[in-house]
């Protein structure tokens, strides 16, 4: 009921500063950056405006010199790392491992693959439409959630989101859409509602440090500024390369595990991968990648 009260308040843009909404708890929000979901990744124009450096491979190549400039590197949104195409790229190994896992599970029951592909064994292009609303399940489903659900339903096997085997299968599933523009379906009212919920979460201040995601990821915030060793970048385009292989720790990471890591920095209670709030946040983040090609496998 609380969320019901929040949505109209958001729509009115009554979001700035300290917000006390309809009798709910005292909540503070970072001022609304007024992102237009229908612009997809192009919403970065007039937002961080860094998309001019990373929109296409040609743009990235033209601005490759930024990678060597500490104060400006953030403008590449780390997309220059997608240009590294070597055979031994650890993300590629994950594709192979994920594929082998799918084969093994589908050998036990081919219905597993058909469940992943919602009726057909062909996964090509399908991940680009995620997250989506699944009418039969009555909820927003991400690729990792689909994998968990199908393993459970068809094979009675636990493959929880956040478990490396789930993430590997996700890398394989999404690699089957590599290059396909992301198209989260905003014409679906349930998806739009999830986007609005995710949007509110993005601006909501939480935790001991009282930060919102927006405190570091919108213009005027810490975005583009040094935060000790790091520089937070635009949220546009990020969802495209997840799950990613994290070079510094040598492990795969799903986007929801990334949310949890930012929550750690914010001294905010992190949630489990698959938590409905994280699914809403993933919808919000993925809409900010609409129109940008799926870029899995990747390394960061």
């Amino acid at each position: 009921m609380l969320k019901r009260a929040l949505l109209p308040a958001l729509a009115l843009g009554a979001l700035a500063g300290c917000g006390i909404f309809g009798g709910g708890p005292h909540r503070e929000h970072y001022p609304d950056a007024r992102i237009d979901p229908f612009k997809g990744v192009e919403g970065d124009v007039g937002f961080s405006d860094t998309i001019q450096y990373w929109r296409t491979e040609a743009d990235l190549q033209r601005h490759a010199a930024l990678a060597e400039k500490p104060a400006e590197q953030w403008k590449l949104n780390w997309k220059h790392m997608d240009l590294d195409r070597i055979e031994l790229h650890p993300g590629h190994l994950a594709v192979d491992e994920g594929q082998a896992l799918v084969k093994k599970l589908a050998a036990r029951d081919p219905a597993f693959l058909a469940c992943l592909g919602e009726g057909s064994a062909d996964l090509k292009g399908k991940a680009a439409a995620y997250p989506k609303f699944d009418a039969a399940l009555g909820r927003i489903v991400t690729v990792e959630d689909r994998i968990e659900h199908c393993a459970k339903r068809v094979l009675k096997e636990d493959l929880p989101q956040g478990k490396p085997s789930n993430t590997k299968i996700s890398v394989y599933f999404k690699s089957q859409s590599a290059g396909t523009p992301i198209g989260v379906d905003l014409s679906d009212g349930n998806v739009m509602e999830a986007y609005r919920r995710g949007e509110e979460l993005f601006y909501r201040k939480t935790g001991q440090l009282n930060f919102a995601c927006a405190s570091c990821h919108v213009p005027g915030s810490i975005m583009g500024h040094k935060l000790r060793g790091e520089t937070p970048t635009t949220p546009f385009g990020d969802a495209a390369h997840y799950p990613t292989y994290r070079t510094p720790v040598g492990a795969l990471e799903s986007i929801q595990e990334r949310f949890a890591r930012c929550h750690g920095q914010m001294r905010t209670q992190a949630l489990k991968p698959g938590d409905p709030a994280y699914a809403d946040l993933e919808v919000f983040m993925t809409v900010l990648s609409n129109g940008y090609p799926v870029s899995v496998p990747s390394a960061r």
């Binding site: 708890p25 909501r204 939480t206 001294r267 905010t268 209670q269």
Partner: peptide, 21 residues
């Protein structure tokens, strides 16, 4: 995972999701 549940969080279901700043 450190416990910061005494402060507001984003959960739709956990008590910290309803905590006031």
């Amino acid at each position: 995972v450190p416990d910061y549940s005494a402060f507001p969080c984003l959960s739709h279901t956990l008590p910290c999701g309803e905590l006031a700043a």
